[in-house]
């Protein structure tokens, strides 16, 4: 899958999505990600959507689902890098993504996760 990639960074999973991602790609991503969370037992996921020029209701819904699945696997999800125009459009669509945590950038998300203890002593057991 080229349209999205999952990297392990500082003990969290970083998901980066490119602008030409298709619906099929993003559903594949959802599956691949939940598998990686379970395999690595990580507690934090960062989804970088700064490359996305639009987030429509489908992608918004997938982001919400992905977060719910991650939470069931004991990981919190941060959506980072949302563009101003995308944020305004989502609000107009009535999609506030209440399930997701948000942060400006990856490093902001990592800071927040450190503060909430998700990274320090990251791996369980």
């Amino acid at each position: 899958m080229n349209a999205a990639a999952i990297y392990a960074v500082e003990g969290v999973l970083l998901v980066s999505i490119t602008s030409d991602i298709t619906d099929t790609d993003i559903i594949d991503l959802q599956e691949a990600l939940s598998k990686r969370i379970a395999d690595t037992e990580c507690r934090g996921v960062v989804v970088d959507i700064s490359a996305l020029e639009i987030v429509d209701t489908f992608v918004g819904r997938v982001l919400a689902q992905l977060t719910s699945v991650a939470r069931l696997l004991d990981a919190e999800t941060y959506v980072v890098g949302m563009r101003p125009a995308v944020a305004m459009t989502l609000v107009e669509l009535g999609m506030y993504l209440p399930e997701n945590h948000t942060a400006l950038t990856l490093s902001h998300a990592l800071d927040k996760m450190r503060q909430s203890g998700l990274i320090d002593g990251l791996r369980r057991g």
Binding site: Y78, V79, V80, M82, P84, V86, A87, M88, L90, V91, E92, Y96, L97, T102, A103, L104, T105, H108, A109
Partner: peptide, 12 residues
């Protein structure tokens, strides 16, 4: 409220 929601989506 919508402004506040958009600000949150941006991560602030």
């Amino acid at each position: 409220l919508r402004t506040a929601a958009a600000v949150r989506l941006m991560g602030a």
